[in-house]
C-alpha cells in the first residue's frame, strides 16, 4: 500500500478505535496521528508527551487493525516490538478500525503513565 501520509489526493477516512478491555472508543481520521485523534476526541487513554515520536510516553500495542507509521525512536520501540504491533501512537495513522491497549515501558523514575480511563467532564473545565 502506498503511503497516504501528507498526500492531499487521498481523502481522509474515519476509523473507530476501541481500547481493549475498556468502554472507551474514539474516532480517528486517517489524516491525523492516533494520539492527536485521541486528544481531539477528548479522551486520555494514551499518555501524551512530545507528540513527535521521541519520548515513548504514548507507547501502545495495536491488537487488531491496519495502520501506517512514521519513524519512531528505537529507544522505545525496537524492531521486535514493532513486529508485535507495539508502536508510538503519535506516529501511527489508522488505515482501518483499530483495537489498542496501552503498553507503557517498564520505566523507572519519573515515568507517568497515561491515565487509565477517560477524564471526567469535571476535570475538563
Amino acid at each position: 500500500m502506498s503511503s497516504q501520509i501528507g498526500n492531499p489526493a487521498v481523502l481522509a477516512d474515519v476509523h473507530q478505535v476501541r481500547v481493549h478491555d475498556e468502554t472507551v472508543q474514539f474516532k480517528a481520521s486517517s489524516a491525523v496521528n492516533l494520539l492527536v485523534a485521541m486528544e481531539q476526541a477528548r479522551e486520555s487513554v494514551i499518555g501524551i508527551g512530545c507528540r513527535g515520536g521521541g519520548c515513548g510516553k504514548c507507547r501502545i500495542r495495536v491488537l487488531d487493525g491496519d495502520y501506517e507509521t512514521k519513524r519512531m525512536s528505537r529507544a522505545w520501540v525496537t524492531e521486535e516490538d514493532e513486529a508485535q504491533g507495539i508502536v508510538l501512537a503519535c506516529r501511527i495513522f489508522a488505515r482501518s478500525d483499530l483495537t489498542i491497549i496501552s503498553e507503557p515501558l517498564p520505566m523507572a523514575y519519573g515515568y507517568q503513565p497515561g491515565r487509565s480511563s477517560s477524564l471526567q467532564q469535571a476535570e475538563l473545565k
Binding site: I48, G49, R51, G52, G53, C55, G56, W76, M107
Partner: peptide
C-alpha cells in the same frame, strides 16, 4: 515541546 519524563528524547528532537 514537552520532552516528557523521558527527558531529552524530544519530539521532533526538539
Amino acid at each position: 515541546p514537552l520532552p516528557g519524563p523521558r527527558t531529552g528524547d524530544l519530539g521532533r528532537g526538539a
